[in-house]
């Protein structure tokens, strides 16, 4: 009986949460690149978002506040380029440049 009551309460709360107007705090990450193209098979990733710069030199991505990182992924291996804080209603600029055959990352918030 108690188990059923708990299940019912959890169900109501669960359904209620999905019906709520949930807004998380967000900021923005501006990613700038000063290199022509990535090496074949390399993919840039911001947290879990794939960054497709294409022919563009920059893009702006909304992100939840907290710690974020940019990684470069090649096949199964990935390498973290930099880590930075995303703050509420603010822009953090991440510049990516090629140096000595690899990518370097600098952050300005």
């Amino acid at each position: 009986m108690r188990l059923r009551l708990t299940q019912a309460v959890l169900l109501v709360v669960g359904v209620g949460l999905t019906g709520c107007d949930w807004h998380e705090e967000t900021g923005f990450v501006e990613v700038k690149k000063s290199f022509a193209t990535l090496a074949t098979g390399d993919i840039l990733i911001l947290n879990s978002t794939t960054l497709d710069l294409g022919a563009r030199s920059s893009l702006v991505v909304r992100q939840p506040t907290g710690t974020a990182s940019i990684q470069i992924k090649h096949g199964e291996t990935s390498r973290k380029l930099c880590e930075f804080a995303v703050r509420k209603n603010r822009v953090v600029t991440v510049s990516l440049a090629a140096a000595n055959g690899s990518l370097r990352c600098s952050v300005q918030s």
Partner: peptide
């Protein structure tokens, strides 16, 4: 303005609305 709006009232309200 974006904000976290989560309350028991909201949860119950959401549950009733969904039902």
């Amino acid at each position: 303005p974006r904000r976290r709006t989560l309350s028991l009232g909201g949860a119950i309200c959401g549950a009733f609305l969904c039902t």
